[in-house]
Design a protein around this nucleic acid. Structure first.
Lengths: 187, 187
DNA sequence: CCGACTCTACCTAGTGATAGATAGGCGCAT
DNA sequence: ATGCGCCTATCTATCACTAGGTAGAGTCGG
């Protein structure tokens, strides 16, 4: 393998998106990578280290993706459509979900280092959404915009969770449609 | 204990609401109940049996609670406010969340019997919400009403998840406020 | 050019803790 | 005396993690 550490992170992310942090085992991960579990510990001393690295990278990747969208267009409707599509893609990928969404549920059992990265991920999403909402309505109250951004973030996460529990991507689409129709997500 | 089986179910529910199905261990549960783990197996032969019974009862209780609301008033705004309050109460109870919401995330690792009960729980919620929406707008298209009901269910679940990840009930309130302000939840 | 040293990236083997589950027995109430 | 409710004791499997070792690549002085 060219870069084992990267391979570990990629495969671990996929596992956590499907089974959660609790459902991530060094043995299974090692088997997927093609090495022994002891070798995972060489790259990430503890599971908490791996979890924190995973969540941090997840946030970095999200920021890069979202900023990429902003570099291509300033149309709020297009940007929000693309944002929703990111969450849809997780479901398309074997009914997976947002890694930090899963970790949010597991909050009570997460090492502190992982918890703070999960919070940071939410912050990145909310900040970006608020930025897009300001493009749509620059005159709006900044505090209300931030609240609205958090509401959209939470609602899409909820739609993903509901669709996942049924293994039904069409349900995700239907729920998001309702969000747009009722005005939660501006069109 | 007067009724050990009931005690097991009550305490198990609390554990799953905080740590998920995966986070429920017979040893910890038995310790909480004050018996040995082997005795749990006497009442529930396997963990899957316990999980299914838990999810089924959760749905039954929800139905009873919601129907109780309907028996008291026919005002949609009041009913929806009470519905939201039920989810808020989980957070108030040591930052717990909806048991079936947690299980929705764990979907991939759930025994089939548990999965179907989780789906049934969602059905109960959506059916009740649709009923309330029909009270608010009897002329609306029934299919659209059902979609809207699912959107509200998903959005509130998402709000709970987001608030839990921050241990911040005020965030739940803020998000729900946004849902009402934008019109997702009719006022 | 070569032996000695060191570092990286992996390995085998095993730790103690914990998981769900089982067999069989004991005490008590009907 | 039958059976319910719970027990002790144990099983097998898996968990994160560790100790200690090794093959190979790179680095160094002489």
């Amino acid at each position: 393998m060219l870069d084992t550490r990267e391979t570990i992170m990629t495969l671990a992310r996929a596992i956590v998106q499907a089974h959660g942090y609790q459902g991530l085992s060094f043995r299974d991960l090692a088997k997927a990578v093609g090495i022994k579990s002891a070798s995972i510990h060489y790259h990430f001393p503890t599971k908490a280290d791996l979890g924190a690295a995973l969540a941090r990278r997840y946030g970095e990747d999200a920021r890069a993706t979202l900023d990429g969208f902003l570099a291509e267009t300033s149309d709020p409707a297009t940007l929000l459509r693309r944002y929703v599509a990111v969450f849809r893609r997780a479901l398309e990928n074997d009914n997976r979900m947002c890694m930090c969404g899963f970790m949010a549920a597991e909050h009570d059992d997460l090492p502190e280092a992982v918890k703070s990265e999960v919070r940071a991920f939410a912050d990145i999403n909310v900040a970006w959404l608020a930025q897009v909402l300001r493009l749509a309505d620059p005159a709006a109250d900044p505090t209300a915009t931030e609240k609205r951004a958090f509401a959209i973030f939470a609602a899409i996460g909820g739609a993903q969770l509901a669709a996942r529990s049924r293994g039904d991507i069409a349900l995700f689409d239907s729920i998001v449609e309702s969000y747009c129709a009722t005005g939660l997500i501006p069109a």
